[in-house]
């Protein structure tokens, strides 16, 4: 292991990791927004929109992110929709993540017993109040584990961004391997940086999940 090499190229990896995290966070934030809207459309059975959301979810979940990115980055400009690689990465991640988040929220909503909404209604609440004070708080906490798993999944998926020439961690590692043949060092840095990004989220996730599973409300 050549430590001088590692120290020399550390800043390159830092920049790349920041790009990965930046695109990842914006993309995940958008995924949550998209997922929430889609889950709401499904929950309220909004006509027409509901069918569109179902088709979107199926397409998004049954195709790989890499191909979605290729389509957005290389194919859409041919019909006049061109965008920067960064924007493309963000939109691609949101397109993929939106459906996963939607499924997490939807199953959370479905897991709340119907009697909960009914007892809220029988106390004279409006539907919106029942949803806001009774159904949503429970649905959100039920979907937390799936939600955290999705965040980890989406952060991992950002590794394909180098395919649309974003200078992320993978791009940097491949570049250094190609230029200097320092395979071990490059791969070592790659693994370390992904661990720095992913390990805290994973640990936080299992902590939250354990709390929800064993304690529930009120302890």
């Amino acid at each position: 292991m050549n430590w001088d090499f590692i120290l020399k190229y550390l800043p390159l990896y830092e920049t790349a990791a920041l790009l990965t995290v930046k695109i990842g966070l914006i993309g995940i934030a958008l995924s949550i927004a998209v997922g929430f809207l889609c889950a709401a459309v499904l929950y309220f059975k909004v006509p027409v929109l509901r069918q569109i959301v179902i088709v979107y979810i199926e397409v998004s979940r049954n195709t790989p992110l890499l191909i979605q990115l290729f389509f957005i980055y290389y194919a859409l400009p041919k019909v006049g929709i061109g965008m920067s690689a960064q924007l493309c990465g963000i939109i691609g991640l949101a397109f993929l993540g939106g459906s996963y988040m939607a499924e997490a929220f939807r199953s959370g909503l479905e897991a709340v017993e119907p009697i909960q909404a009914e007892s809220a209604l029988s106390l004279g609440m409006q539907r919106s109040q029942a949803l806001r004070y009774v159904v949503l708080p429970q649905a959100v906490s039920i979907s937390v584990p799936a939600f955290v798993a999705n965040i980890i999944f989406l952060l991992k998926e950002t590794s394909v961004f180098s395919a649309i020439s974003l200078m992320d961690l993978m791009f940097t590692a491949k570049d250094l391997i190609g230029q200097y043949y320092k395979t071990t060092e490059s791969l070592f840095l790659l693994v370390v940086f992904y661990l720095i990004i992913l390990l805290p989220v994973s640990i936080l996730g299992s902590y939250v999940e354990r709390r929800l599973r064993y304690a529930g409300f009120g302890s």
């Binding site: 980890i152 991992k156 998926e157 950002t158 590794s159 394909v160 993978m170 590692a173 491949k174 391997i177 043949y181 395979t183 071990t184 490059s186 791969l187 790659l190 693994v191 992904y194 661990l195 992913l198 390990l199 994973s202």
Partner: peptide, 23 residues
């Protein structure tokens, strides 16, 4: 289990592909 699941599959591919040939 934890290592395999936390690493992006592409990183694993790089590790196996590049380190086996070059190292």
């Amino acid at each position: 289990l934890e290592f395999i699941r936390i690493m992006p599959q592409l990183v694993l591919l790089f590790i196996v592909f590049f380190s086996s040939t070059r190292t």
